[in-house]
């Protein structure tokens, strides 16, 4: 459903992505791995139309994303969960969800009630300002906020970063649940056990290039690959 071909992106004069090609199929969870600064976040921003200059092609269900604005890309059914979470700190939890709300096409829409079943601890803090929530709570809220838009593909940027191990576990369960619902996920990660537990396939980025791609089982089995691309 998502197909990027020879995607390049720049920040100012610096080129960050070089001919990145990847695909995500319906119902698939695909991991995007690589060290810090390898271009994982930029790939996601480039798909969402949030980088200043990009080249190549990105298609989603036959639509050319390069010609669309960010809000139009989101309306096609792509949800983005940014790494820095970007909660609206001055809005309450309920208002944060309201900003994300969009009508669903066909499927049963996400409602705050359904999301509170997925993230039970959010249910008790509906009126709490986003700025007064813990990192883990914010991380869950970010995912919930994106789901309110009823996306068919979610770009999930390093959800395990800077949150407690318990929350990481919770997040893995959530991704599995979303996959069961038929959602596709592009997951950016550095945490191999976490990514390995939820993903079908994997692309490894190095210095803005796709350095390796293949099945998740293959990467998990090969210490050589792990040392070469993920080791610190």
């Amino acid at each position: 459903m998502l197909e990027a071909q020879k995607l390049c992106a720049w920040y100012g004069a610096a080129q960050i992505l070089f001919d990145v090609s990847l695909t995500v199929c319906e119902g698939e969870v695909v991991a995007l791995m690589g060290r810090n600064g390898s271009g994982k976040t930029t790939t996601m921003k480039a798909i969402m139309g949030l980088v200043g200059r990009r080249a190549g092609s990105v298609r989603f269900d036959g639509h050319d994303l390069m010609a669309l604005k960010t809000f139009q890309i989101a309306r096609l059914g792509i949800g983005w969960v940014p790494e820095e979470r970007r909660i609206f700190t001055e809005l309450t939890l309920a208002e944060n969800l309201e900003v994300g709300r969009r009508a669903a096409n066909g499927r049963a829409p996400w409602t705050p009630e359904r999301l509170f079943q997925l993230f039970p601890n959010l249910a008790e803090m509906r009126e709490r300002p986003g700025g007064r929530m813990s990192g883990g709570e914010q991380q869950m809220l970010t995912v919930a906020r994106t789901l309110m838009g009823n996306p068919r593909l979610v770009l999930l940027d390093e959800p395990s970063e800077g949150v407690a191990p318990l929350v990481v576990e919770r997040m893995a369960d959530t991704i599995a649940e979303l996959k069961k619902e038929g959602l596709s996920v592009l997951l950016s990660e550095q945490n191999l056990p976490f990514a390995g537990a939820v993903s079908d396939r994997v692309y490894i980025l190095e210095k803005g290039h796709i350095a390796w791609s293949g099945g998740m089982a293959e990467l998990e089995a090969s210490e050589e690959l792990q040392r070469q691309y993920l080791g610190v």
């Binding site: 604005k69 989101a74 809005l91 944060n96």
Partner: peptide
């Protein structure tokens, strides 16, 4: 109002609001 909520959200982070599908 929903409109007001969107305005307040955009005040804080316009790109995020756009990424959630709002025509800013």
């Amino acid at each position: 109002t929903r409109w007001g909520t969107l305005v307040r959200a955009a005040t804080q982070d316009r790109d995020m609001v756009a990424a959630l599908g709002v025509d800013q």
